[in-house]
């Protein structure tokens, strides 16, 4: 069976020629959660945007393939690509406020996509949306559907977005730090909901986060990203049991533990960073040779 998402040697550059993605390879099997972890600026969001076809205009893909359920996105006509991405994927975004249109009621935003893009009947879309709102434990769907986004709390908005993401039964969901903008207690609920719906619907998720605690809870596989380069990838359990790359080990050491919050908290070691810099430089050197 082919992978749900298969990224091979993806490189993307800024107008100044600097690479933001450095030959990234990563795959997500059907129904699997792949965590993508790395510090701020590592390029996690960039990978998600590349897959969903919404890279900023300044970022250009110069090499590599992206296969969505075996279909090579790079080889499709723009229109066919949009249709494929629209039908098979969805995004759970980081900021649930700006991801909803402030001037439209929740109900119309949620059903609109099913009706206008996927051609469902209004009735079917409405039933579906209510079912999903129930799954994300929204108990007063009538009020929520009639509300404008600003009338809901952050947690409610994120539930709405999760429901919307799963509504069209996509094969792949990109979740870009879906809990970062929420407060801690709500974070846990939202994470649990995503995990629950993921299991129930069997959807593959590319789960972007900078939080190793979240990685451990939700994912089966994990890729560690540093400066646009995958420095380590492994089964989640294996990674936590025996991290191979020094950066992964440093990242783990930098994550606070409940049992001993301060003792284990260390900044990433100078030597590790120097090693990474050398590794990145060598990779760029090797890459530049054939690419001029």
């Amino acid at each position: 069976m082919s992978a749900c998402l298969d990224i091979r040697d993806l490189s993307a550059v800024l107008p100044n020629g600097q690479r933001v993605l450095r030959s990234v390879s990563l795959s997500v099997q059907p129904g699997e959660v792949r965590a993508l972890v790395g510090e701020s600026g590592a390029g996690k969001t960039m990978i998600g945007k590349a897959v969903l076809g919404v890279l900023p205009s300044s970022v250009r893909i110069v090499e590599g393939d992206m296969l969505l359920e075996g279909e090579d996105l790079g080889r499709l006509e723009p229109k066919a690509r949009r249709t494929l991405i629209g039908a098979r994927t969805a995004l759970i975004p980081q900021d649930p406020l700006t991801a909803l249109n402030p001037s439209r009621r929740i109900g119309s935003q949620m059903t609109d996509r099913l009706v206008r893009i996927l051609g469902w009947s209004g009735e079917r879309a409405d039933t579906r949306i209510r079912q999903l709102l129930d799954e994300v434990q929204i108990r007063d769907p009538d009020r929520v559907l009639k509300s404008y986004p600003h009338e809901l709390s952050g947690g409610m908005r994120q539930r709405v977005l999760i429901a919307a993401a799963f509504a069209a039964e996509p094969r792949l969901i990109v979740a870009d730090e879906p809990t970062t903008a929420l407060d801690v207690t709500v974070q846990k609920q939202i994470l649990r909901l995503i995990a629950q719906l993921q299991r129930d619907h069997g959807t593959a998720i590319l789960f972007v986060t900078h939080d190793l605690g979240v990685v451990a809870k939700i994912s089966q596989k994990v890729s560690v990203l540093y400066a646009g380069k995958v420095v380590e990838e492994a089964e989640t359990a294996a990674l936590f049991a025996a991290p191979q790359h020094p950066y992964t080990r440093a990242l783990m050491a930098a994550t606070p533990r409940y049992t001993d919050p301060f003792a284990s908290l260390k900044p990433v070691d100078e030597a590790v960073l120097a090693g990474l810099a050398a590794e990145i430089a060598a990779a760029d050197q090797a890459w530049r040779r054939p690419h001029g």
Partner: peptide
């Protein structure tokens, strides 16, 4: 620049449709 516009792109709406149906109501 808001995420809802990007979301509409991902969902497969056309550019002009997004401009008229998603953005315009917010500048009315």
């Amino acid at each position: 620049r808001m995420d809802y516009v990007e979301n509409a792109r991902i969902a497969g709406y056309g550019r002009i449709g997004i401009m008229l149906r998603e953005v315009l109501p917010n500048v009315v």
